[in-house]
Design a protein around this nucleic acid. Structure first.
Length: 225
DNA sequence: GACCAGGCACATC
DNA sequence: GATGTGCATGGT
């Protein structure tokens, strides 16, 4: 059996360390695929606890369905998502996504996710307010499609460990993971969630590396990309 | 009060 | 392609 490339071994070692330290994260926390997609928009550059309040508002008001969100006024929607910040922007983004979902797939998620993944990704990216991270979160966490999600934590953890440079592009960093790991949705799901976890615990802007499960000897010397 | 949080669009060079 | 700015709430 062929020996695995060094980077693959290193990325797998990181995953094993994090899994051992924190256990499965069971992402995405939501009651439905639709709720995951709305949450993906609302959590843009925002702490998840704030999103929880906005999501709770929507559910309490019976708005967590494509039809209901299609009908609700922009003003009322903005009031509902207010706790998640950027509330006027995000209300517009949710509306834009709902328009896309209704026009392209008649609000049917099964129809949406039966599209070829690459085509669906590019269509999602064409919706105003859906960028690479939000699109990939929808594909991976709502669609179960094996695509690696990159976020600010992923960047910070890897660059602090000198696996990558700090300003590597989204697409390159995503390719870095996907070129060296098996294309498995369950693996990508947990790995990304664990990177967020260790980011929250230890890889803050001001490092708190004491007790981090990714110990110092795992640090590389030269960035791979 | 400062800083941060599971981005994105848009203007400008 | 890189860099800068506006968008906004809520917790530490």
């Amino acid at each position: 059996m062929k020996r695995k490339p060094r980077i693959t071994q290193q990325l797998e070692r990181y995953n094993q360390r994090l899994l051992k330290a924190y256990g499965p994260q069971h992402w995405w926390p939501a009651d439905s695929r639709f709720e995951i997609m709305i949450g993906a928009i609302l959590t843009q550059n925002t702490a998840w606890r704030n999103v929880e309040q906005a999501v709770a508002n929507l559910k309490r008001e019976g708005l967590m369905t494509p039809r209901a969100l299609q009908r609700v006024s922009l003003k009322r929607l903005a009031a509902m998502v207010r706790p998640s910040g950027y509330f006027r922007i995000k209300a517009g983004r949710v509306k834009a996504f709902i328009r896309f979902l209704m026009q392209q797939y008649k609000g049917d998620l099964r129809r949406m996710f039966s599209e070829p993944a690459g085509l669906l990704r590019s269509k999602l990216l064409s919706v105003k307010g859906i960028g690479p991270e939000t699109a990939d979160s929808i594909l991976l966490y709502a669609g179960g499609i094996p695509i690696f999600v990159i976020d600010a934590y992923t960047r910070r953890v890897l660059s602090r460990h000198r696996l990558t440079t700090s300003k590597v592009s989204y697409d390159r960093l995503q390719r870095f993971f996907m070129d060296h790991l098996q294309p498995r949705a369950d693996l990508y799901n947990e790995y990304h969630a664990l990177l967020v976890k260790v980011g929250k615990e230890h890889c803050k802007p001001t490092p708190a590396c004491q007790g981090c499960p990714l110990e110092v000897y795992l640090y590389g010397k030269k960035p791979n990309i």
